[in-house]
Amino acid sequence: MNHLETDEETAVALRNADAVSPLVFVCEHASAHIPERFGTLGLSVEARKSHAAWDPGALALAERLADRFGAVLVAASVSRLVIDCNRPPEAPDAMPARSEIFDIPGNAKLDKAEREIRSQSYYTPFHAAVAKAISDRSDPILVTVHSFTPVYHGAARTVEIGVLHDRDARLADAMLDAADRAGAQNVRRNDPYGPEDGVTHTLKKHALPGKHLNVMLEVRNDLIADAAAQDDMAKRLGDWLESALSTTGAAAC
């Protein structure tokens, strides 16, 4: 189906679930939704809508890329402030008590039992869906899609697009080469985050063990703030990805 299949308490949403493309798109921070049982986590409306709660524009961008390549998209259905599916559950920032300028009162005194409940309720089924999408394909290619805030802790970021990787840089190298050939500006490797920041968890969990091609894309969220901008960015990234796959000898469909 060409829509996200989800419901109020589901941990994961799928788009193009029956797709046969080897590409697997993943959006770990797709939603700002906080399930009812958590209340507001003690947060203001501003905080619940901010980049601390999700990656604005990332889901729309991931949907466009998945549709372009006729590929499956696996998206998390709850806010990363409930649990960050791009962190191991035991990591302190998987259920942060503070995110940039925001305190998260509902996460301030989590005991082991509550952390385990969140992990089993949301993290485990999300990653099971990613694992299934990977295992259903003979030569899977993992692409995770994120956005980042233009200003972080008061400092402006000039980078526009980050192409991130962990130990396996094959697809990232090819995408960066494609971006360079296209004359793209402010496209950088492992910026504004890199493996040292713990952001490559999904790549490490699902791509590195099987030596599958993989890349993580980070786009500054002011560049994907509306539908027209999302269309434009999806075309740019899609063109680079298509070129990169050709360079690496991988097929997109």
Score class of each variant (00 low, 15 high):
2 N>V: 09
9 E>R: 07
13 A>W: 10
13 A>F: 05
14 L>K: 12
21 S>I: 14
21 S>H: 02
28 E>T: 06
36 E>R: 06
37 R>T: 05
37 R>H: 05
41 L>A: 03
44 S>K: 11
47 A>T: 14
54 W>M: 02
55 D>C: 02
57 G>K: 07
57 G>A: 02
58 A>D: 08
59 L>C: 03
59 L>W: 02
60 A>S: 10
64 R>N: 06
64 R>A: 05
74 V>Y: 14
75 A>C: 09
76 A>V: 15
77 S>Y: 00
81 L>W: 03
85 C>S: 08
86 N>M: 11
88 P>M: 11
88 P>E: 15
88 P>W: 14
89 P>L: 14
91 A>Q: 12
92 P>S: 07
94 A>F: 12
96 P>L: 04
97 A>V: 05
101 I>K: 04
103 D>K: 05
107 N>L: 03
108 A>W: 12
110 L>I: 08
111 D>T: 13
115 R>K: 15
116 E>D: 12
116 E>R: 14
116 E>W: 08
117 I>K: 15
125 P>Y: 10
126 F>M: 09
126 F>Q: 03
127 H>T: 13
128 A>F: 09
131 A>E: 12
138 S>D: 13
139 D>H: 14
139 D>R: 10
141 I>M: 02
143 V>I: 15
144 T>H: 08
145 V>P: 04
145 V>K: 01
147 S>F: 05
159 V>C: 12
163 V>L: 04
176 L>Q: 03
177 D>Q: 12
184 A>N: 04
185 Q>I: 09
185 Q>A: 02
187 V>P: 03
188 R>D: 07
193 Y>D: 01
194 G>V: 05
200 T>N: 08
207 A>E: 11
215 V>R: 01
216 M>Y: 02
217 L>H: 05
218 E>Y: 08
221 N>Q: 06
223 L>V: 10
225 A>L: 01
228 A>E: 10
235 K>V: 01
236 R>L: 04
240 W>C: 00
240 W>H: 01
243 S>P: 05
246 S>A: 10
249 G>K: 13
